[in-house]
Amino acid sequence: MTAVVLVCAVLLAAAAILAVVRAERGPSMLDRTVALDVLTTTLVAFVGLEAAWSRRTDTIPVLVALSLVGFVGSVTIARFASREPPGEGRVRTREEIARDEAAREEAVRAAGGLDGTGPADGVDGGRG
């Protein structure tokens, strides 16, 4: 039994890591939601596995609660995200942030030079 439980635990841990990878990478909010759904279910499976290993019943209410409310987050995010324009919700890469910062500084400098009439609006509108 112990060997089986160990193999299962490794598989579940791998699944959880993969879900986290997708949550980090996921291009949109909804992808992250799906990934977190997988993470939640993996967590439920983990709790169940541990309960099966040690034959305990006191963690089963955790399973009940998680299975009941696990979908609330997905539904909520889906409600909000249904108006999300494509490209939003994407975490910018380090280079993009650096580029935006440089552009903003450039804009500020240009605005100073042009006496306050600079094109500040057009530059940092990327994260509007």
Partner: peptide, 14 residues
Amino acid sequence: GGALLAFAAGVGVV
């Protein structure tokens, strides 16, 4: 079986 399916789900999600 359950752990394998969860793992497959993780692989699919990625």
